[in-house]
Design a protein around this nucleic acid. Structure first.
Length: 322
DNA sequence: GCGACAG
DNA sequence: ATCTTGTCGC
């Protein structure tokens, strides 16, 4: 019982709720018809979210009676279903011909007439707006602290952590954590809508603090990675620091720095060697040169110290009972 | 099969 | 990001 309480719904993350829209769409598939992960993703506004739709069906129970069995692969392959569930049998009971786990006559069975809000389309527009507001110069006054922000997950619950270090002494001066129930899955290039709601309450200091964020900033298809998103929406200085690339072409390394070019422009640098690389880009109000200098200065075993500390803290919060 | 997309 | 056994190294 105690475990159930621990994983029970507490406070939904304060951001866009894609989970509800996915189940709303699924509920529109009539008996005798099927749809695909990609078709639902398209109705949400972006087919890239197909895998995320599958992930949500696996992780979230959804409203009672949600017809998860009516969502199949584009090949017609029926989903696995949860413990004690038999999607193929349910489909058969609705008159769908399933042979060896594959829906027959997909073309005739396929439903795609969803009437849901194409949320991902409006979120892309929001990102375009954020790109316009990003300030790529230095505007953070007197630097007193450098704070790391990171998120870890347990099922549908997110744990955010902040670890702040004194910019002069390098001393750890503050740690803070928070948690909420995730309402937005991981979708490439939409990460900020999953993590910003978790991290927002951890951004308390508005003056003299630069926030290093685990993810890209302007080195993003629409110039609005999570670091840019948090920087612009909260108007705080931020830097993006990711462990792997999302977009751009990595150039030749010079003096430990390899430029990352996007649309003919250097939008980031890869620092650190090989597998321990960090991709640095502008979030907001910190220039690329300054961002790289700060990250290099704080680099410990391939990762900026505040980020490692925030990562550990988020992981601890995830594992701790209370 | 290939290509591949932060966390 | 998380899922996981054994294994290497300080």
């Amino acid at each position: 019982m105690r475990e159930l309480v621990h994983h029970a719904v507490q406070r939904p993350c304060d951001g866009p709720d894609l989970i509800s829209i996915i189940f709303e769409a699924m509920d529109q598939i009539p008996p005798g018809k099927v749809s695909t992960y990609g078709d639902i993703a398209a109705a949400l506004g972006d087919r890239v979210a197909a895998r995320a739709v599958g992930e949500v069906l696996a992780r979230y129970p959804g409203p009672p009676g949600s017809p998860k069995h009516r969502v199949v692969h584009s090949t017609g392959r029926v989903g696995k279903g949860g413990p004690g569930e038999d999607p193929a049998a349910l489909l058969a009971s609705e008159g769908v011909n399933v042979v060896e786990g594959i829906v027959r006559d997909m073309a005739a069975r396929r439903f795609a007439g969803f009437r849901v809000k194409p949320l991902l389309a409006s979120l892309r527009e929001e990102q375009e707006g954020i790109r316009e507001k990003v300030f790529e110069g230095d505007d953070f006054g007197e630097l007193r602290r450098v704070a790391g922000l990171d998120v870890s997950y347990a099922g549908t619950k997110a744990f955010g952590a902040m670890a702040a270090f004194d910019a002069r002494t390098g001393e750890l001066v503050e740690e803070r954590t928070t948690d909420c129930d995730v309402r937005f899955p991981y979708i490439p290039a939409y990460l900020s809508f999953r993590e910003t709601p978790v991290l927002r309450p951890l951004v308390t200091e508005r003056e003299g603090t630069i926030y290093l964020i685990d993810g890209h900033g302007s080195l993003h298809p629409r110039g609005a990675g999570v670091a840019a998103h948090i920087g612009v929406t909260l108007d705080v200085p931020t830097v993006g620091a990711a462990k792997s690339a999302l977009v751009g072409e990595v150039g030749d390394e010079v003096g430990g720095r390899a430029p990352v070019v996007l649309n003919g422009e250097i939008k980031g640098y890869r620092i650190g060697e090989g597998r321990k690389a960090t991709f640095v880009s502008v979030g907001h109000r910190v220039s690329l040169d300054t961002a790289v200098e700060i990250c290099e200065h704080l680099l410990v075993k391939g990762i900026p110290l505040p980020l490692r500390r925030a990562h550990d803290l988020a992981g601890t919060a995830r594992r701790s009972p209370e």
